[in-house]
Design a binder for these strands. Sequence first.
DNA 1: GCTATTTAGATTGTGTGCAATTAGATTGTC
DNA 2: GACAATCTAATTGCACACAATCTAAATAGC
Lengths: 154, 154
Amino acid sequence: MAQKDGADDGTPRLGQQLCFAVYQASHAFNRAYRPILAALGLTYPQYLVMLALWEDDGPTVKALGEKLMLDSGTLTPLLKRLEGAGLIRRERDPQDERQVRIRLTDKGEAMRAQGQGVQEAIGCALGATAPGAEPLREQLERVRDALLASSRDE
Amino acid sequence: MAQKDGADDGTPRLGQQLCFAVYQASHAFNRAYRPILAALGLTYPQYLVMLALWEDDGPTVKALGEKLMLDSGTLTPLLKRLEGAGLIRRERDPQDERQVRIRLTDKGEAMRAQGQGVQEAIGCALGATAPGAEPLREQLERVRDALLASSRDE
DNA sequence: GCTATTTAGATTGTGTGCAATTAGATTGTC
DNA sequence: GACAATCTAATTGCACACAATCTAAATAGC
């Protein structure tokens, strides 16, 4: 019984798998971010786009997609919602009209300060005795344990 | 400036955050599982449900939702698709007709053997030189680094 | 100059995920 | 028994996420 995720009958065990732990941790993060970002009117992927733009304004959709590992089918509607919210502009590159460049509006730039507050809020949610933080901490422990276990038998 | 994810100007950096690493790793796992599970006609959450049923057949929707941390709004359509595929049955509990019990059909039970193959395939994809495995391994390393970094300054 | 290929985004269809609401059943109290 | 409070699942609406496909623009090859 030195196996890490095989039950005695050979059926894979649910709770001990790295992928499941990561999957759950991702949801737990999302749930932790959601109420904080709701105050800004953003979802987590939208917040990631804003972070990327605060770091480097004016990328093409393709560059943004590579940074965030998202394809145009996901980004196009997401960016249109951000444009609808007045946070970004989408403008065709005159040099190469296949490309669409994404730029922050003044409103989007002004949100940068609030974005820093989000990081602090999440830090608090992770570290302290915030309500609802326990599931996230638990999931992260599971991820760590599964990562350590998986790196042991490689 | 011993801070772990604050850039010099205070804007949070994208690449160094635990939440982003977990988010990316979750997608990377999904991409790794997708082609393998496609052979069974399952998505990853559907596979999780099958795993849960192979471990314990006949739970209510609520029990299943607690195990997988999903609510009925997610599970109900997912379970209907599994029912449409002939892998499970959904039947009202005669004792308490509010509850719906989920049971494997013979076809669903017969898939158990193939489910074990999935675990092995993912193990290979993680460990070896499988095509497309590198992004997943990279992401997991990032998660590990971020986890270690975050546990250092607590 | 002109067609063929490549590239960048947009579109469409399927499948999660979750908040909010609804419908029906059960339990507790009178 | 009647009835309100509670509980469970289903339903609805919105927002990702990705595969497959389409359109338009740019480039390569002739």
